Amino acid sequence: MANFSLEDLKALRERLGTGMVDTKNALVEAEGDMDKAIEILRLKGAKGNAKRADRSTSEGLVAAAENGNTATIIELACETDFVAKGDKFVALADKVLAAVVAAGATSVEEGLAAPLEGTTVETFINDEAAILGEKIELRRLTSITAEHFAIYLHKTSQDLPPQVGVLVGYTGDDGETARAIAQHISFADPLYLSREDVPAAEVEKERHIVEEISRNEGKPEAQLSKIVEGRISAFIKQIALLEQEYSRDNKFKVAQVLDNAGITVTGFTRFKVGA
């Protein structure tokens, strides 16, 4: 005779999200002891985690929050969009974000070591991965400090959680324009803030490429230098935020929009799931 009821079976399944057969077998093995059954299920899930270690995690979500003069953004990754849009995965992301923000984590390593419900974020994620049956990982974590922040989270599909997230740190009082710039960043994907921030080595690499292209196109040698500089300028306009054409009105550069609003961007971060 079983040492547990159907209500016990239902309660454990709802608590862990595990399958009927696995849950029933764990309760039988544990002779109705709920805590022992949970341990059995998690140990079984941990073995599954080891088998899933080499699987790719191309789905997931981004989440962000600010705390005082610091804002943090994370990417929590999983294997399938089915799990990504589930309530349990979204709730896990909320807990992980709250834990890393509370710990002041500024890197994935610090985030995984942050305390969460009597254990670490890393162990908590692994336990939840065992329950959900997929590989889950805290793929990225970044924080920035600033006077003010604009946070923009974008859904690429209405049935999925946010897939693109942007943090913008700024000074000034025009929060509406700052948010619009965050939206611009989500679309335009700049890599650097200003022209001066683009590494010289990256510019020189591009210069070599466009010079070779220009020569292969048969451009006149006398005009080559001017043509190359023009293409370098276009390259920088693609990757430096302040040089980009503003997505809402391409008659203006982002720098002009910021100047008109009286705000200064001091830093930004953009995450896209799987990128």
Rank of each mutant, 00 (worst) to 15 (best):
I181Y: 01
D189P: 00
E245K: 15
A63T: 01
A50L: 11
E109R: 04
A113Y: 11
E211Y: 02
T269Q: 15
E211V: 00
E206H: 01
G230S: 09
R140A: 11
N25L: 11
D81H: 08
A65N: 09
D22E: 14
R248S: 12
V210I: 07
D35C: 00
G104N: 00
G32S: 04
T123V: 12
T18G: 08
F89R: 13
G230M: 11
G262P: 02
K237Q: 12
R139D: 08
D159R: 11
L167M: 02
A129Q: 08
G111D: 03
A99W: 01
G32W: 03
L43D: 14
L112Y: 04
V164Q: 02
E39T: 12
V228P: 06
T57R: 03
T120K: 05
G172A: 09
K85A: 01
A99F: 00
V28N: 11
T120Y: 06
A63K: 13
D22T: 03
T23S: 10
S58W: 01
S107V: 01
A240H: 04
E79A: 10
K36S: 07
K251C: 00
A63F: 03
V62L: 12
D173Y: 01
A275E: 15
M20F: 15
V168A: 06
D159P: 04
P115D: 09
L167W: 05
G32Y: 04
T72E: 07
V90P: 06
I185P: 05
V198F: 07
A129E: 10
E245S: 15
T142K: 15
E134Q: 07
D127L: 10
L241A: 08
N49C: 12
E110S: 06
D8G: 03
G274L: 12
L167D: 05
G165A: 09
Q183V: 11
D81V: 05
K47P: 01
G60N: 13
V28G: 02
A180W: 01
A150K: 10
E31M: 11
V265S: 01
V62Y: 13
I38R: 07
D159E: 14
S143C: 05
F149A: 08
K272N: 12
G19A: 13
A234M: 10
L153W: 06
S233N: 15
T123Q: 13
T57K: 04
C78D: 09
M34F: 11
